[in-house]
Computed example of a mutant assay.
Amino acid sequence: MKHLSAQEIRQKIRDGEWTKPTAGLAQNNAQANLVILPKELAYDFLLFCQRNPKPCPLLEVTDVGSPIPYLTAPDADLRTDLPKYRIYEYGELIAEVTDITQYWRDDLVSFLIGCSFTFEQALLTNNLPVRHIQEGKNVPMYKTNISCQNAGVFHGNLVVSMRPFQPRDAIRAAQITSRFPSVHGAPVHMGNPKLIGIDNLDEVDFGEAVTLKENEIPVFWACGVTPQAVAMQSKPPFMITHAPGHMFITDQKDESYSIL
């Protein structure tokens, strides 16, 4: 799978041949988080993204009723081309599915949000190993005590993803990822997780825990799963998202989102 093109991987996902997390797939192609909402809530969520660009950097917003992301992958279908989706009603997770065709409605608007998987290739290119890829796991994600800026009906706290590094490598990782503001950019925190409300790194809210080796520090980036935590608090009547770690793979190259 690693050596297939983005289009080929999306086809395998559409055919049900890949239902696992997408970290490490289609290297050099940008990946995206997905949020789908009824039109009546779309403006509030657009405003939420504008006010919270670290966790919710927008890559594309689709036309009402269209599942086609014309800017980032015009031959794709957002109803079928992610490995796994989550369906929420009034903040409750009611289903996790591999195809949302049966849930699709003509009033839905899709938001593609930058994903930190995009900058991981830059880390690997600079000889900075990414632990969850090494261990074949989904990236660990945690709810924090950091409040997002409210917008309309949407409110809640930031979710972060974590990657461990030796201290000097953590600084280098911050420098590298700062070049990618469209996919979360530089870390929001390094070191003691309790300072941002995380009591135990082994107890993840999303994804899977990874090994923290001796003399390593945890490094935390804003995460596109934040809208799912926000949905649980804001309780919109209907919302579809990607399942954490199961991203949409675009046709856009990672470097197209780099500022240097």
Results as ranks from 00 to 15, higher is better:
M1P: 03
K2N: 12
L4C: 00
S5C: 05
A6E: 02
I9K: 14
R10D: 03
R10F: 05
I13Q: 01
D15E: 12
W18D: 04
T22R: 01
G24W: 02
L25P: 07
A26Q: 10
Q27P: 08
Q27N: 12
N29G: 11
V35R: 11
L37A: 08
P38G: 14
L41Q: 15
L41S: 15
Y43R: 13
Y43C: 11
D44R: 08
D44T: 08
F45P: 10
F45T: 04
L47F: 04
C49H: 08
Q50H: 14
R51S: 11
P53Q: 05
P53R: 15
P53K: 13
C56Q: 11
L58Q: 11
V61S: 10
V61H: 10
T62E: 07
G65Q: 03
I68S: 15
L71A: 13
T72S: 15
D75R: 06
L78I: 10
R79Q: 08
R79I: 04
T80Y: 14
T80D: 11
D81I: 14
L82A: 14
P83H: 09
I87E: 05
Y90R: 08
E92D: 07
E96V: 12
I100T: 03
T101Y: 01
W104D: 06
D107Q: 12
F111D: 01
T118E: 09
F119N: 12
A122L: 13
L123N: 12
L123H: 02
N126Q: 15
L128S: 10
P129A: 13
V130T: 15
V130P: 08
G136C: 11
K137W: 03
K137A: 02
M141K: 01
Y142M: 12
K143Q: 09
T144G: 08
N145F: 00
I146K: 05
C148Q: 09
Q149E: 14
Q149P: 07
F154C: 10
N157L: 09
N157Q: 02
V159D: 00
V159T: 14
M162D: 10
R163M: 01
P164V: 09
A170H: 12
A170P: 04
A170C: 15
T177L: 02
S178D: 06
R179C: 04
F180T: 00
S182I: 00
V183Q: 04
H184L: 00
P187K: 14
V188Y: 01
H189R: 12
N192E: 13
G197P: 07
I198A: 11
I198M: 13
D205Y: 06
E208Q: 07
E208R: 02
T211M: 11
E214Y: 06
N215T: 10
I217F: 13
I217Y: 09
W221C: 00
A222D: 00
C223E: 05
Q228R: 02
A231E: 06
A231Y: 10
K235M: 04
K235F: 01
F238Q: 12
F238M: 05
I240N: 09
I240G: 07
T241R: 00
H242F: 06
M247C: 14
K253T: 13
K253E: 11
D254V: 08
D254G: 01
I259Q: 08
I259D: 02
I259A: 00
